[in-house]
Amino acid sequence: MTITILGIDALDPDLIDPDTHENLSMNAHHPIDTIVSVAGEPSTHELWPTIITGLTPSEHGLKLDDGVTWGNPIFRIGSNIADYLLPQKIQSRIGAWLLTNTSEDAFREQATYYIENGLSTIFDGREAEAIGIPNYVVNPDDEDREHALRRSMGDLFERDSDAKGGHTSADPIEFYEQCMEMGMVRIARTRRALRSRNYELIFGYTSALDLIGHISYDNPDLQHDAYNEMDNFVGELIGDLYPEDDLLLVSDHGLQDGLHTDEAVVASTDCTLIDNIDSVTDVRAAVEDALDQNDHAPTGRERLVQPNNGGDSVRKQLEDLGYM
């Protein structure tokens, strides 16, 4: 048995339509509380560490100082000096320029941070795989297509403090295509980990919906289309589950009209898995309870055909064609 968590940044409970998005809503879904940063809205930088530790940002220490991750490792020395020399507004503008015009990706705190600071995570003591989680970088040299695209967006995704969503795009349609490719890559990696049967816990993450949401405030059809496509992608992941497996979707916040909202969401194939999740701080405990109550030991690649992938119909087709 495997629990797979898919973190979908900015998945908004108000934008999930159970009649249209049966895979995003699954057997049960509901809004959960999130945490607002000093910038006045929930922050990706703070919240994924919260989700994997169960701790608030003030407890795990990965806090947003000015809204543009000025505390990122590449900026840390400079930011310590700047705190004494530069007003916060100027720090924010410099940080925005750096993140827009350098190849450094944001949210790249290494997993060793947690060990060094005496923090435990949802992965400790488990046969687990972490895929792209912000501020939990297992191997800093490991880069996939989502990382590569995030670092090379250029004018497709520029920070603009005067824009409604805080960002502008020179070509929203091209940007949309890149973001959906990012989502496909991360979900494909999550599916491969699940299919290997080598893990009791898999946690994949994609920022595709968040990025699209930030530039679609004047083109809401793009965000609508993104939800429809993401629903299809999640459906493919659901198709890889064995009957005894569970899938949990979780977001860090919502996003409407280009801006983060103060509600996140959870959804699951198992209604009981999310019964006690009322906040982003509850996700870790709920998953660990489920892991402790059931046998989630990885089985390895012992079955070549899944029991829920239409094997009977395939066999009948082969029989009708005379191959069996």
Rank of each mutant, 00 (worst) to 15 (best):
M1F: 00
T4D: 07
L6W: 04
D9F: 01
A10Q: 01
P13V: 10
D14F: 03
L15D: 09
D17R: 06
H21K: 07
S25G: 03
A28D: 13
P31Q: 11
I32T: 11
D33L: 13
V36K: 15
V36F: 03
S37W: 05
S37N: 13
V38I: 12
A39I: 01
H45K: 08
E46P: 14
I52Q: 09
T53W: 01
T53L: 13
T56S: 15
G61A: 08
L64Q: 13
D65F: 07
D66R: 03
W70R: 11
G71P: 00
N72K: 09
N72Y: 06
P73C: 07
I74K: 05
F75A: 04
I77C: 00
I77Q: 12
S79V: 03
I81Q: 05
D83M: 08
K89P: 01
I90M: 10
L98G: 12
T100A: 14
S103F: 11
S103V: 10
A106Y: 12
A106S: 14
E109I: 15
A111P: 03
T112K: 09
E116F: 01
G118W: 11
G118Q: 09
G118Y: 08
T121Q: 04
F123R: 06
F123K: 05
D124P: 08
G125N: 06
G125E: 10
E127Y: 06
E127H: 14
I131E: 02
I131N: 04
P134R: 03
Y136I: 03
Y136M: 09
V137H: 05
V137D: 07
P140T: 14
E143V: 15
D144L: 06
R145N: 11
A148H: 09
A148S: 15
M153C: 08
R159A: 10
D160K: 10
S161F: 05
S161P: 12
D162Y: 14
K164V: 15
G165E: 11
G165F: 09
G166N: 12
H167Q: 11
D171Q: 13
P172G: 05
F175V: 04
E177D: 15
Q178K: 15
M180G: 07
M180D: 07
R189H: 08
N198A: 08
Y199S: 10
Y199R: 13
F203R: 02
G204N: 04
D210E: 08
G213E: 06
S216V: 01
D218W: 05
D221I: 05
L222Q: 14
Y227N: 06
E229C: 00
E229F: 10
N232I: 13
N232H: 12
F233V: 02
G235I: 03
E236N: 11
E236Y: 00
L237K: 07
I238H: 04
P243H: 00
L248D: 06
V250C: 12
D252M: 05
G254N: 02
G258W: 01
E263M: 05
V265R: 04
V266H: 03
S268Q: 09
T272Y: 02
L273D: 03
I274H: 08
D275P: 01
I277E: 01
D278R: 14
T281C: 14
D289M: 10
A290W: 06
D292I: 03
D292V: 00
A297E: 14
P298T: 04
G300S: 09
R303N: 02
P307L: 07
P307Y: 00
D312W: 01
S313M: 04
S313K: 12
S313A: 10
L318Y: 11
D320W: 01
G322F: 05
Y323C: 03
